[in-house]
Design a binder for these strands. Structure first.
Lengths: 252, 252
DNA sequence: CGCGGGATTGAGCCGAATCAATGCAGGTGG
DNA sequence: CCACCTGCATTGATTCGGCTCAATCCCGCG
């Protein structure tokens, strides 16, 4: 093959990637934000975009994971399975989050597109090398991992010790908080929030360690108690967030 | 005060620490193993030893954690509490493990000595600075954190989806594996293992999201099934590890 | 209009929690 | 040395929360 043609093609790919990086709307929030212009050039050389449809498997448990990625849009479920099919969601990753497990041969979980997903993928080996040679990247990755570890441990408390209502309230509270932060930065803790659940009842069950039926029952229970209101099955209106927070720590 | 006397005293402290580092039996397994002689000199300057009695609180949840540490001996429970006293153990750390949560104002959990504990402590601010300036340290910390995250997610599967017997079997299997690796590196998966539980029934309950009574019942159930044998309440004999592994994924 | 997938609701069951009693060892003081 | 306590573990009886199974509802869609 023509090396001339190849290098031309390579140059084009780089251009596209660099263009993509500079225009990227998650850049400042994601890992890449830790890098300077020179370093981002290196990263762009080993990155490529990929699309996944909702429900599509991105990485399989036990499989050698040949790439890592930053989520550009959509969200991803990290799940674990027992031999007989019982499933547990062990993490949710949203846009600008990093996905993949560096420094290990095989992935310890499944990664599945929860919605339509756009990824910015990096070759595993080359990315790992980059992390080792660029401390700022490693530092950013470390901080992200520590946050995920905190989240995982909070979830352990939920799964091990909370009742069904408390679990559902906790999840809603989490999402409500997130939604509030995005929508209006300066609104107080007592204001009304509304949002769309990104998850089906089945997914909520798998996340909370419950069945669909119990999730449904606890939602209607919270509705009856006036803590939340439902518009359709996906849209949630929270009138008083503190009340929801209270429900997430005591069954009452 | 006499600056002469002070510098002499400082020199002495450094000497002791360096002596301690070079003789330290966890050095090669712990974080510090990532450092060269020059860097370990820096670390030794900000380190000091501390002792804790079993049950003593090392770090409080929500408290500003003023130090990090490497465990020299003993083990530590990381726990979370709900307002009404329900407790969940979210992690166990053993000798050579790192303890503390860098890059955050306050600790997200309690750390409590599970046995007599000897720590090698570092001042928080100075350690964080050292991590940022010494990539090998950050790299090592990152790998450790990723491992803890994997462990936490495995535990989420256990807490969310496993039955009581499966949970107890999982824990025993975990410890048995650990014990087997330590005691004899080359023995096969079918060989017999025996070990002492480092945890009381109450602690096992808090780790597995169960009550003391259920833990006890499931232990006797496993005993009746011939999967394990008990010598006293702490010593466990596992005749066939594969059988135990099987019990940890299907109630049967 | 009928169909299909997700969500809700109900009836009954089962596994783990709760409450309570007993067992068992180690330590203390008479 | 024994009686007695105290803390932990085991065992039993009962309760209760969440699961299972099953029917119904709801809504978007062909």
């Amino acid at each position: 093959m023509s090396s001339c043609l190849e290098s031309a093609r390579k140059a084009k790919v780089e251009m596209i990637n660099e263009l993509a990086c500079s225009h990227c709307d998650v850049r400042h929030r994601a890992l890449c934000g830790a890098l300077g212009d020179e370093e981002i050039h290196l990263l762009s050389q080993i990155s490529h975009r990929r699309h996944f449809d909702p429900g599509e498997q991105i990485i399989g448990e036990g499989e050698p994971a040949e790439f890592f990625a930053v989520i550009l849009s959509g969200f991803i479920k990290l799940t674990k399975l027992l031999a007989d099919g019982r499933q547990q969601i062990v993490g949710l990753q949203f846009s600008s989050d990093f996905i993949g497990r560096p420094f290990t041969e095989t992935s310890p979980f499944f990664a599945e597109a929860g919605s339509a997903v756009e990824l910015c993928c990096f070759d595993a080996k080359r990315f790992e090398a980059l992390v080792k040679s660029h401390p700022t990247l490693g530092q950013r990755l470390l901080e992200g991992t520590l946050d995920e570890l905190d989240a995982a441990r909070n979830w352990m408390l939920l799964l091990g010790r909370k009742t069904a209502v408390e679990r559902v309230a906790s999840l809603l509270h989490l999402i409500a908080d997130r939604a509030r932060r995005v929508s209006c930065a300066r609104c107080g803790p007592h204001d009304m929030v509304s949002f769309d659940l990104p998850l089906s009842r089945a997914e909520i069950g798998d996340y909370l360690g419950l069945t669909i039926e119990t999730v449904s029952r606890q939602m209607t229970s919270l509705k009856r108690r006036g803590v939340i209101a439902l518009e359709g099955s996906r849209r949630i209106v929270v009138s008083d967030v503190t009340q929801l927070a209270a429900a997430s720590e005591q069954a009452a």
